[in-house]
Structure formats: C-alpha cells, structure tokens
Design a protein around this nucleic acid. Structure first.
Length: 758
DNA sequence: GAGCCTCGAGTTCC
DNA sequence: CTCGAGGCTC
C-alpha cells in the first residue's frame, strides 16, 4: 500500500512514541518504494517524494538516535532510485509506421505511392516485406567502427541511453569492419519464446515476479540499472534500418539489409522482395502461416519501397514515412463482463464513457478498462447513425468482446446478447455533467456531448491546467498532472496565472485562493461522493468530515510546502526554480498552452509564425472579434486555419472571463517572439509561393513539402501577398492574376535552380 | 462537392 | 493508437 500523507507533525514536536511509530512507518514506506522501483521498474512515488521520506527519517533518527531501527532505511546500501537513464536526442527521428489491417489498405498504399511519385499503375515498383518483430526499437550508433551509443526509441525524438546494457547483448557487434565512418543501425530487441519461458521459470524459482509476455520481459531486461542483470537475460536483435549515415549503405532497401548482415548484424531471414501488392499479400499469408513456428513474437509484416532514391522522394508525413506500412495481424479477442459505465470529463468538456470490465487477459496484458467513445457508440450506432455491432447496444452486465487496437488501446468488438442478464436496461447517457452538474449538450452534427460549465467545472479546470503544464506547453519540471490536480483541490492553483504566484504565497504563509467554506459548498449533495473522496485524499485524510477537512485545508494552506509530507526543501526549491525558468516562454508554447479547442501544437505554431509577437496576436484576435473584416480575413489566410478553428480561437480569446485569465497569465510572463524556421541561406524563407500548372520534375505534394522545409509558405491562390508564382505548362488564371498584381513568375527549372542553391 | 491528408482530442497500460 | 473532423485539393 502507498503511504498516506497524515499531515506531518514537525519533527521537533514529535513525542517519543510518535517518533517510534513514524520511524516504523517510514521504514515500510521506503522499503515499499525501493521494491516498487527495482522489481517493477516503475516507481510508485516521485523522486522528490522519496527524498522527502528519507530526509524525514534521517531527521527523526537524529533527534532520537536510540530509536533507530535495525532495518533503518538510512543504513541501506545500494543505489537510491534517483538516477534513471540519461536522455539521448536522436540525430534522425525514430518514426513509427502507419498501420494497415486489411488487404485493401495495402492496395491503397501502393496506389498512393504511385500517385505521389507520378508512376503509372503498371510501372515496375518493388517493395521489401519483412516480419514485424514485437519487441523494442533500438538505435545503435557506431563511430569509426565502434559502438559508441545505444538508445531506446522513447518518443521518437528523445530516447534513453542504454549503451551499457546493450553491450551485454551477444548478437549486437561491438565493432564493425568496413562500414561507413558513422553508422546508426536501427532494429528490434526481442526475447525468443524458449528463452522467455526459461527466464520466467528462473524468476519463479527465485520468488520473483513472472513477466506477462516476451516484450515486457525484453523491455524490463533492457531497462535494468545494473548491466550485469541485463547480461543474464537472453536478449536478441534484428536490424532493419538505419538513422544517420556518413555514406549510403546501398541503393536499395534489400541491398542495405544485406549490407547490415555482412557487417555482422542479425537480419530477419524472412525478408523478401515483392513486385507489387499481389506478391506482398501472398507474402503476408506465408509469414502468417509460419508465425507459430518462428519461436518469437511478430505482430505483422512491414512493407517498404525498395528503391532508396524513391524513399527519399516520398519522404515523411508528420509521424510516419510515406514509403513504409505495417500490415498487422488480426488482434486477439477475449470475452468478459461489463461491470459499469463511468463518465470522464475532458479539457474541452467532452463527456467520455469508459467501460469498467471484469479484468481479462488480452494479448498478454490484463485489461480492466476500455473506451466506449461516445453515446452513439454505446447505443450501437456510428456518427452517421449507421448500426455498428449489428446495431446491438451495450448494457451494464453484458458480456462483451475485448481487443487491443494497435495492440494497445482496449476496445469492445462485440456484445453477446444471448448472455444479457435479465432486467438489464439500456444505458442512459447523462445530460448533465457528473462533475459539476451543468447541462451537457450535444451540438448539431457533433458526436460528443459536452459539459457547458466551462471553468466552473472542476474537471475541466483541472484538465486545462494539466494541459497547461504538459510537455508541449509549459513543461514545468516537478509540476506534473498529479501535482496540478492536488494543488487545484487544495485551492492553491485555480488557473494558470496562479502557478506563477504560488512561491510568493507559500512564503507569505497563505497559499489558498479560496476559503474552505467555498470548497465545501460545492460538496453538499450526497451524490458528490467521489468529489469528497478526492478532496479528502488530496488533504491526506482517511475519511470525510467537514470540520476536519476545513481545518486541514487551512493548516496546509499556512504550512510552507517544504514542511509538508512528500516535499522537502530541495524539491520545493527545484519546483519554484522550474516555474521561474518558464516566466520566459516562446509564443507558440503560450498559444498552445491556452488549451483552445482545435488549436493544437501545429496550429499554435502556425499562429505564432504568422503574428510573431504576443501583443500582435492579441490585437489581431480583438480586431477579428466580429468575424469579418481584414483581421478576420488575415487569420483565415493562414494555410491550415479554417473557419472552425478561427471561430473557436477568436471567441475563446476575446470572451471576457477567459480573456481576463489570459491577461493575468501574460502579466506574469515574458512571451518570446516567434523564431522563424531554421532556413539559413534559404532564398525562399518567409516568402509566399504558389504553384500552378503542370509540374514535370516533381509532384505538387513534393514541391509543397520541399518549399516548406525551406521556410516558404505555400498558398493555393495568388494574392497581393504572394511573392512568387511557380508556373508550369498549362498555367492559366493564376498566372494572369500574378501578372496583374506584378508578382514574380518563374518556371519549374528556375525554381529548382533557385532552391538548389540552398 | 467529394476525397484525401493531417491534426486534435481522448484513452489505456506499463 | 484511433476516431472524428477540419481544411485543402481537385
């Protein structure tokens, strides 16, 4: 059990008996945290919390030396679970693959590539096909033939340095002969079935936890802090790709794989060349047929365009290469019973139903929750009103079939009406918010029902704050989702601006922004049991008693954070330092952090680039309030901004309460001007370019992607703001308009010459 | 107006 | 990771 947080009595005030009791409690709590960290590779409490426990233990021991226990945590040897793995930024992003689940999607994949490349349906186009190993991706960096770094995939941009562990894997060469000077090899670490069974037998004999499946075993083994543990684990490796290179490996994917094999890397023996969708699908069946006998887990077949020059032309979408796709095997299914349907309220007020299930193992993992999407889904209809699951609705008590979409997200596939319990009634979707009681309404044509409470809804307020501190927004170290939620419940932070005044209020001994009566007022009716529980929990109380809650609420408001359990002086200082660091914030993060519907990372980036300065952005929003006029048109002229986004943005930013909150926040900050894309030496940076007519050396999509990578804005129509028109043969009205407006016109060859210089 | 292609939002489990 | 929907292209 996790240690609760009984309001910490100052060490000085502890009686002897209390001290002895607490030392025992601390010893247990620390041992529990250690075990959770080492055994499960999943710390249950934060490093800061852990440090605070240890420090309090040490202080009590210092005051009562004779009470020191034989199992005192301060005597424990071994590395404290502070340092994890160093972060590694990948020089070339490790992307994921687009997925396909049926044959048709593979035909479409081929057609899409041909279209993009401008190839006829019958032109030759070869693909490689290889089994998709179910393990963990790894990037191995070799310099001058020697392995210098191994990193996990992480989020694709930044992974963890696992070099010391990887050096213990026999199948990964330490040195290469005759490779390029710089070579990053990418592949999959996995554990074979036989090795997995043997490992689990050993784990069990040693009284340790069995691993749920080979992939978890491989992941757990690779992420050992002690490389000697990894050395004892039977990890294996298949190379399938590469990142940074000082010289090309080959001209084709197949050639590159053969080269990696010649350099000493294991490559998958089932890798084959296919000349089109027909052969690809035949290969898929073949691999599927041999799946059970392979001796290791695979979850599909990956196809890649064989010609590397074509791969380069195809390039990437935002998170996946265009030249590859993973054809997944059908997901495993399992039947279980639906215990309850809960409603969660998101940042935008969306009411999302979640299925609480009798736990069931699906694909090696125990699943107890699954998404139910929205009210139509429960009723057995899709957003167009067409029946899904043959129109069967879902009721509490039903037997339902579960699968893990993409091997991750649990979903329901079917309902067994023959086993429906007698008296089961159709689920009635709430029409008021379960968190704040406000009306929950569904807009015309929308599939989700939303709480109309806005910021008075605690769920929305908390989710908005979580979004605010999230990685792509303010990313404040030491202030994660958990802390934000707790600070909100304790009344210390109600809106983003409050984060930046917290340190001062802490020093002044008055953190709460609301009176306890006010907090309690919202908890009157009996239905709000959950909210009461959460508040009691945040206060560290076992039960809910109004007077005790109010008392504790005030005491915690007055007690400096550094004296509260779970926090120590150092962690508090780190938190406040991290907050101070974010008083300077890039404008794109600021815009994203506001959490406006339809404005995600990408849209925020576009807006930041367009307006440059924060004041200019706000002024433009004000000028566009009436949704007409030059400011409104200017907003809509941004490529990627349409009417829906614009309306959502302008109404949010100019709405009084919201705006006041934004201004309070901005008052605490220095918002940094947008950085233009890194296009040093690009002749077209910041220019607005329009393509028209037929392009002969590249497709329109390629031309657009290339121009944007050089910092140009590509627009669809010629206007006074257009700097350059690239006109191929057959250009018509656009060329005419450009001439009228005096916009420079060049042909495709001139364009290539122009950007070739970059 | 139809058909992509992306992005945004919501979600689970480790 | 997926679904829904916004926005762009044809």
């Amino acid at each position: 059990m996790a240690p609760k947080d009984p309001e910490a009595t100052p060490v000085e005030a502890l009686s002897r008996d209390e001290a002895a009791t607490e030392l025992q409690r601390l010893a247990q709590a620390i041992a529990w945290a250690d075990a959770a960290y080492h055994r499960d590779d999943a710390p249950e409490i934060s490093d800061a919390d852990y440090d605070a426990l240890k420090r309090r233990n040490a202080r009590i021991e210092a005051r009562f030396p004779d009470l020191k226990r034989p199992d005192s945590p301060s005597e424990r040897v071994g590395a404290p679970p502070t340092e994890g793995f160093a972060k590694v930024v990948h020089s070339v992003r490790m992307l994921s693959l687009a997925n396909a689940f049926d044959d048709e999607e593979i035909t479409e994949f081929d057609a899409r590539i041909r279209r993009y490349l401008g190839l006829a349906a019958d032109a030759p186009l070869a693909y490689t096909a290889e089994p998709k190993i179910d393990g963990l991706s790894l990037s191995l960096r070799y310099e001058a033939g020697g392995l210098v770094q191994a990193a996990t995939r992480g989020d694709g941009t930044e992974g963890e340095d696992v070099t010391r562990n990887v050096r213990t894997i026999g199948e990964i060469p330490e040195r290469l002969e005759g490779g390029p000077d710089l070579l990053e090899v990418r592949g999959e670490v996995y554990m074979a079935h036989a090795d997995f069974e043997a490992l689990n037998a050993r784990q069990e004999a040693a009284g340790q936890k069995r691993f749920a499946n080979p992939r978890n075993a491989a992941a757990g083994s690779l992420r050992q802090l002690d490389p000697s543990v990894t050395a004892g684990r039977p990890l294996r490796f298949f190379a399938y790709g590469w990142g940074a290179l000082s010289a090309p490996l080959a001209e084709t994917q197949m050639g590159a794989i053969e080269r990696l094999s010649a350099l000493g890397f294991p490559t998958n023996p089932l890798t084959a060349l296919c000349d089109g969708p027909g052969e690809m699908l035949a290969r898929y069946r073949e691999v599927e047929r041999r799946r059970a006998a392979l001796g290791y887990d695979i979850d599909g077949v990956v196809y890649k365009v064989n010609d590397l020059a074509l791969q380069e032309r195809l390039g990437f979408r935002s998170t996946t290469p265009r030249w590859a796709i993973a054809h997944k095997f059908p997901a495993e299914l399992a039947w279980t019973q639906l215990e309850a349907i809960d409603i969660q309220v998101g940042r935008t007020g969306a009411l999302s139903p979640v299925a609480r299930l009798v736990p069931v193992t699906v694909g090696g993992v125990v699943v107890s929750n699954a998404t139910l999407h929205n009210e139509d889904y429960i009723a057995g209809r899709d957003s167009q009103g067409n029946p899904i699951r043959d129109g069967k609705d879902i009721r509490v008590g039903d037997w339902v079939q579960v699968y893990r979409a993409g091997d991750v997200i649990p979903k329901l596939a079917d309902v067994d009406l023959s086993r429906r319990p007698e008296g089961a009634t159709a689920y009635v979707f709430p029409t008021s918010c379960p968190e704040c009681g406000s009306d929950a309404i569904r807009e015309e044509g929308d599939s989700v029902r939303r709480c109309t409470g806005g910021l008075i809804c605690p769920a929305q307020a908390i989710e908005k704050l979580k979004h605010f501190v999230s990685r792509a927004a303010f990313d404040i170290e030491g202030l994660g989702a958990k802390q934000v939620e707790q600070f909100y419940l304790l009344g210390w932070i109600r809106e983003p601006a409050d984060i930046f005044t917290l340190a001062a209020r802490d020093a002044a001994g008055e953190k709460a922004l609301v009176a306890p009566q006010e907090v309690l007022a919202g908890l009157h009716d009996e239905e709000r049991g959950e909210a009461r529980e959460r508040l009691a929990d945040a206060l560290g109380l076992e039960g809910f008693d109004r007077e005790e809650v109010a008392r504790t609420f005030e005491r915690r408001s007055r007690t400096p954070l550094s004296e509260q359990l779970g926090w120590g002086e150092k962690s508090v200082r780190n938190l406040f330092d991290a907050i101070e660091e974010r008083r300077e914030i890039p404008i794109e993060r600021m815009i994203f952090a506001l959490g406006i519907r339809h404005v995600g990372e990408t849209a925020a980036q576009l807006l930041a680039r367009h307006y440059g300065r924060w004041e200019a952005f706000l002024a433009a929003m004000d000028a566009a309030t009436d949704q007409a006029g030059p400011a409104w048109d200017d907003l809509l002229s941004i490529d990627g901004v349409g009417a829906v986004l614009a309306r959502s943005l302008v109404t949010s930013v100019t709405q009084d309460a919201e705006r006041a909150s934004i201004d309070r926040l901005a008052g605490e900050l220095t918002v940094l001007e947008a950085e233009q894309p890194d296009t040093e030496g690009s002749p077209v940076a910041g220019k607005t370019v329009v393509f028209t007519g037929k392009l002969e050396k590249m497709t329109r999509a390629e031309a657009k992607a290339r121009a944007e990578s050089l910092g140009a804005r590509v627009s669809g129509s010629v206007s006074a703001k257009t700097d350059l028109l690239v006109a191929g043969p057959g250009a018509g009205s656009k060329a005419k308009k450009a001439t009228e407006l005096g916009v420079e016109i060049i042909d495709e060859d001139d364009w290539l010459k122009l950007i070739g210089a970059a």
